[in-house]
Design a protein around this nucleic acid. Structure first.
Lengths: 197, 197
DNA sequence: CGCACAAACGGAGGCGCCTCCGTTTAACTA
DNA sequence: TAGTTAAACGGAGGCGCCTCCGTTTGTGCG
């Protein structure tokens, strides 16, 4: 009988009054930090408080928790894809690739425990994900290709395999030395990639 | 970081003090009715109130909402399987079969909207389901077999197919005439079963 | 400017979740 | 029957969710 209701979609992005825009941006910023630090279960009232707005304002901008999560998720995905271009400009291709992979695992590390919310989103809005993941994949492929082009890494590898290997870090139990472990793994992969076949 | 915690399992069934046993039984009874009528989202405080116990008592017996749902779910599954035997004793095999199918459909109708809670349960406790469904399947097979034995229905049908057909009612949109529709469908299936090949 | 008014704000209030702990009571013993 | 005690009770209280609506404010217009 009572299945999940669609609710009204998040408000159209443009044509907001100046104060509304300001508050919305502030909320997004605070929420991103809060989710990263304390997980998606963070109290929305806390987020509103930290953003210096009333709880009503938060709910007007993001009618459900999932709407907010979606916006943050999307933003991070975009910034990750964008980082590829930026890194490619500032570093040699292989270094750019390695650094990007580190950021990638850092990103998915954040998403542990978010699994539930993400699943709900995936069902209700699967285009978002196709799109987001597509951007990530092509950003990654550009980096790999550039490094291969310069002869810095081998060219006979399947980028999908590589991405899968990185994603599998998701299932590593979280321990204090988590970051080191993942960096070692990435180092290992890079050595493999640099090895002449 | 913050994934779903296991919590302590539901308290062992036996060796309860008399009052505890009474309260537990009453809670189960009330909860079954409430879930059936208003869905799994029903307020637990309401259930406690209706059962005439404090909310603390409810939580002592069922540390999480899922624990309570599981107990109800299991109970209903058992009673459905048990009904097969009972019906078989009181009616001709084909009538017993038809009536049982109606009950089956009525049962799964209750579970709409419960999907979420059930999924959580399935992940955490999959043996429960294997067991429960196994009982249902064999109860159903007994009925079909008995009717076939007496020559009341054909014997060349696959019970799994039939059960699947019944389950598919799950995806029928809920409308006021839902029950009639499902009964008509069952009638149709029965006619098919009775038809000499 | 100053005005009008829709847009946006914000927080009180109602509800449900869950925990904690002082009080009650069933059950066992002498 | 009275006494003891561990088991069980229950509800107050703290927190978070979300809605509703009276108040404030940005914006466009004369």
């Amino acid at each position: 009988m009572a299945t999940a209701e669609p609710k009204t979609p998040p408000p159209a992005p443009s044509k907001l009054r100046a104060d509304a825009r300001r508050n919305r941006d502030k909320l997004v910023e605070v929420a991103a930090a809060a989710f990263a630090e304390k997980g998606v279960e963070t109290s929305l009232e806390d987020i509103a408080r930290q953003a210096g707005v009333g709880i009503g304002t938060l709910y007007r901008h993001f009618p459900t928790r999932e709407h907010l999560v979606e916006v943050i998720y999307r933003r991070e995905l975009e910034s990750l894809a964008g980082a590829a271009t930026e890194l490619a400009e500032k570093h040699p291709p292989d270094v750019a690739l390695e650094e990007w992979m580190r950021r990638f695992v850092g990103y998915i590390a954040t998403k542990r425990g978010m699994a539930n919310s993400l699943k709900i989103l995936m069902n209700s809005n699967s285009t978002l994900f196709a799109e987001g993941f597509g951007n990530i994949r092509s950003a990654f492929e550009r980096l790999v290709w550039a490094a291969g082009e310069k002869g810095l890494i081998r060219t006979d590898i399947d980028t999908a395999d590589l991405l899968q290997a990185l994603s599998s870090i998701y299932s590593m139990p979280d321990s204090p030395d988590w970051r080191e472990r993942s960096h070692r793994l990435i180092g290992l992969l890079m050595d493999g990639l640099r090895a002449r076949k």
